[in-house]
């Protein structure tokens, strides 16, 4: 079976895209910790629920950024294929 250079690059791009999504671990753990602490805070002070929720969502959205960079790299590798010379 012959594998041309282009096919090889496509396959490696797919593997790279999969590896790039390992970046999703960090934000997952971080958002879980943030949500857990927010739940604890609501338990201690139920009156401040709306403030706690909005602060938690803001912090989680900011923490999500690194995971999204991984997603963008994966997208570029899968669909734009910058490594293939067209």
């Amino acid at each position: 079976m012959n594998i041309s250079g282009d096919d090889f690059i496509r396959g490696c791009s797919a593997i790279g895209a999969g590896l790039a999504l390992i970046a999703g671990i960090g934000p997952g753990v971080g958002q879980g910790i943030a949500a857990g602490h927010a739940a604890a805070a609501v338990g201690r002070n139920p009156g401040a629920k709306s403030d706690i929720t909005s602060t938690m969502l803001l912090g989680q959205a900011v923490a999500e950024t690194t995971g999204l960079y991984g997603l963008l790299v994966a997208m570029l590798l899968m669909f734009v294929k910058p490594l293939l010379n067209k």
Partner: peptide, 16 residues
């Protein structure tokens, strides 16, 4: 850059 990439990547991921 981080502001715009955050918005872009979130909406794009939903679209995809």
């Amino acid at each position: 850059i981080s502001l715009s990439l955050r918005l872009f990547a979130n909406v794009l991921s939903g679209t995809v």
